[in-house]
Design a binder for these strands. Structure first.
Length: 473
RNA sequence: GCCCCCAUCGUCUAGCGGUCUAGGACACUGGCCUUUCAAGCCAGAGGCAGGGGUUCGAAUCCCCUUGGGGGCGCCA
């Protein structure tokens, strides 16, 4: 059975690189009907926090990358936090085994100069520990050894053990180091496939050496390219936001982000760029992933997201919209949206044609939901303050009061009649009305907006705007 | 410094020795639609890092150079 894992260290938020790594592991386990494990690598006491761990798991759940085994859901191979595994003495046990096999040694350090090594010994340095000396365990890399392994992306790899050298596996504080803990855990958790960032490629020989020392079977490795910023340096805050949480806040859809992340460094099958990773699990193929570092393109991400925004079922979009509003704590607006679902769906449906993210969707749709919408400064200056504003608004109120046909065509007829009166140019007339009913100069189509708002709202808004026009002129 | 990975438009990618005057997508430019535009449609500009080989023939294979990235922690 295939078992993959994502093993973040809770020293920061889940960033897009991590999300992509998680996605590949997740996708592979799903396609192979295997299991996906979440393991928290919190062996760095200084930097790991529960808060970050919570944030990472929250982001993963939001993305929909759920796990079969992990710290919260448990599983047969727990615990799933390395700090807890350390408490159980798992790493001590295996490190001591290595010492027993003479493949690792205790290193005792000078009490006063903690950098200075006093001695190496295969015997447990009881007395030194009693007297307060720092002790670590160091893996002794065999000399002149070829370390070979196959990488799904890079092919056959060969390193010389002499280029790798010895390395510490147990710190003086009793915690394992990364290169040791991953091996022990991946083996104990029966992980079969490891998809991880390219940056771990050079670490792999160390890990292979440990696997070999224990006589453990090697998992399959695939080192995937890193995500870089515009200037080809590793993607960081400097290039813009990288946290998954940020994209959530900005109104990206999980399927949009995931689609883009999959697309990044991916061979597109038959030109199909827009797809839902959840619905195309079977298409996941490791040979589709290119092994070249890629640059994160915020603009393409937005484009991809826009496609999804316009693609999903309107009912689903409406639901997601309310979820987003509560995420932003815009609960008043959420209530309004939920009160009349039919109306809300109509509004969102015409608004989504114009935008790419949920955030933009909120901005453009707000005036449809609240009566106290604001007027754009430019609208007031260029239209309301002009001499034609009051007379056109007055005529519009008269015409719309008499209007019985509030279909899109009906509203168009009224507008065209109004423009035909030539109080101002067609464009000015239309824009004046647009701003009057929505406060903005960029909105969905005018006729359909009028139709969706309906008689009551339109008249109320025209009256309100007329009053404002009188006061500003 | 040592070890490793990578190299097609600005970006992501197709290409796996001839079908390449190198195809697609985002972005860009122009046009169309039009009541607005951040949506849609159409068109255009833009690339095989450089140098050696191999071959009848190279974007495709080999070598070197250059460039970019990674690792060499009691970080992960």
């Amino acid at each position: 059975m295939v078992r993959t894992r994502f093993a973040p260290s809770p020293t920061g938020y889940l960033h897009v690189g991590g999300a992509r790594t998680a996605l590949f592991n997740w996708l592979f386990s799903k396609r192979e009907r295997g299991k996906f494990i979440l393991r928290i690598e919190d062996t760095d006491l200084e930097r790991s926090t529960r808060e970050y761990e919570r944030s990472i798991t929250e982001s993963m759940k939001w993305l929909g990358l759920t796990w079969d085994e992990g710290p919260d859901v448990g599983g047969e191979h727990g615990p799933y936090r390395q700090s807890e595994r350390k408490e159980k003495g798992i790493y001590d046990e295996y490190a001591e085994k290595l010492v027993g096999m003479r493949k690792a040694v205790y290193v005792v350090y000078d009490k006063d100069d903690r950098e200075k090594e006093l001695l190496e010994t295969f015997e447990y340095p009881e007395s030194y520990i009693q007297s307060g000396h720092d002790v670590t365990i160091r893996f002794k890399m065999p000399r002149r050894l070829k370390i070979e392994f196959h990488d799904l992306a890079k092919g056959d790899m060969e390193f010389s053990s002499d280029d790798v050298g010895d390395f510490i596996i147990m710190k003086s504080n009793g915690f394992p180091t990364y290169n040791f803990a991953v091996v022990v855990d991946d083996h104990l958790m029966e992980v079969t496939h490891i998809f991880r960032g390219d940056d771990h490629l050079s670490n792999t020989p160390k890990q292979i050496a440990i696997y070999r020392s224990f006589g453990w079977e090697l998992p399959t490795f695939m080192h995937i390219p890193l995500i870089l910023g515009r200037d080809r340096s590793p993607l960081s805050k400097r290039h813009g936001a990288t946290a998954v949480d940020h994209f959530r806040e900005e109104g990206y859809l999980p399927e949009g982000l995931l689609n883009y992340l999959a697309l990044l460094g991916w061979r597109v099958v038959e030109g199909k760029e827009i797809f839902n990773v959840f619905e195309n699990v079977e298409d996941f193929d490791t040979s589709l992933i290119s092994n070249k570092n890629v640059i994160f393109d915020y603009e393409k991400l937005e484009w991809v997201n826009g496609k999804h925004l316009r693609m999903i079922e309107i009912e689903n979009l409406c639901y997601r919209f309310t979820e987003y509003l509560s995420y932003l704590n815009m609960n008043d607006l959420r209530e309004v949206v939920e009160k009349d679902k039919i109306y809300s769906m109509e509004v969102l449906n015409i608004c989504r044609e114009k935008v790419n993210t949920m955030k933009q969707l909120v901005d453009i749709s707000i005036p449809f939901f609240v009566e106290s919408y604001d007027y754009e400064e430019r609208y007031i200056e260029d239209y309301l303050k002009k001499e034609f504003s009051t007379s056109i608004l007055k005529r519009a109120i008269e015409k719309f009061s008499e209007n019985e046909d509030w279909s899109v065509e009906g509203c168009e007829r009224v507008m065209r009649n109004l423009a035909a009166e030539k109080i101002a140019s067609k464009k000015k007339t239309f824009q004046l009305i647009r701003g009057a009913i929505l406060g903005k100069l960029v909105t969905p189509g005018l006729f359909i907006s009028l139709s969706v708002l309906g008689k009551g709202k339109v008249l109320r808004r025209l009256e309100r705007t007329l009053e404002l026009a009188r006061s500003v002129r």
